[in-house]
Write a protein that binds this DNA or RNA. Structure first.
Length: 194
DNA sequence: GAAGGTCAAGCGCA
DNA sequence: CTGCGCTTGACCTT
């Protein structure tokens, strides 16, 4: 029995479940402990991108694992079990994003369609500092935002990736580090360095 | 293989 | 303050 993953808030509806949010998915103590273990233990990768003749850092750190090869030093198997208790999908991938401070961000985007399987959801667990996620329908019919609290779960349908964009804007507010763990069902075969 | 989309920082605008 | 839309260009997707 899980006393925490009780009530989902529906942010958007479609035939595949739309976009749902569980603010209290994990107990706070567990969210805090897992955040620290992931921050210290993940093999964080930085990337660079060219823009206007300058090489700039991608404003976040990244890590990717197959769910069938999770490092035992990380709490990802436990986290996956928690996620699957609420979202019963055959997740085979977890991507982690480390937003170190308010200068880290990700532009509005939808998940790469070749990295997800039609009909299967995407499950995003937030740890560490809260950050605001902006969401917008691609047809611009509506936009909304959700404060992604530590220990929360956001589930987005495959269909919602066709209809909506999401992103994390930079902020001048003093915000501490945040980690998101995003579970996906990727078409096989795939490798973590894809 | 051509065409179109992505997405990084910074600026102007509302 | 915030979000948004525009810019270039290498790389990715269709």
């Amino acid at each position: 029995m899980d006393l925490f993953a009780t009530s989902a808030i529906s942010l958007f509806t479609d035939p595949e479940g739309g976009i749902r949010y569980w603010p209290d998915f994990l107990p706070q103590e567990q969210a805090d402990a897992w955040f620290e273990r992931l921050r210290v233990g993940c093999e964080w990768q930085s990337e660079r991108r060219l823009m206007y003749e300058r090489l700039v850092d991608v404003p976040r750190l990244l890590a990717t694992y197959r769910t069938d090869a999770l490092p035992e030093s990380l709490p990802l198997a436990d986290l996956l079990a928690q996620v699957r208790a609420t979202v019963p999908a055959p997740f085979n991938a977890v991507g982690l994003n480390f937003y170190r401070d308010g200068a880290d961000s990700v532009a509005m985007h939808n998940d790469k369609l070749h990295t997800i399987v039609p009909g299967q959801p995407i499950a995003l667990v937030s740890l560490g500092n809260a950050r605001r996620m902006n969401l917008r329908a691609k047809d611009r019919s509506r936009g909304f935002a959700i404060e992604l609290a530590p220990g929360s779960l956001l589930v987005m349908s495959h269909a919602s990736q066709l209809s909506h964009l999401h992103g994390i804007a930079k902020t001048t507010r003093a915000v501490g580090p945040r980690i998101s763990a995003v579970f996906r069902v990727r078409p096989e075969p795939w490798a973590p360095d894809d």
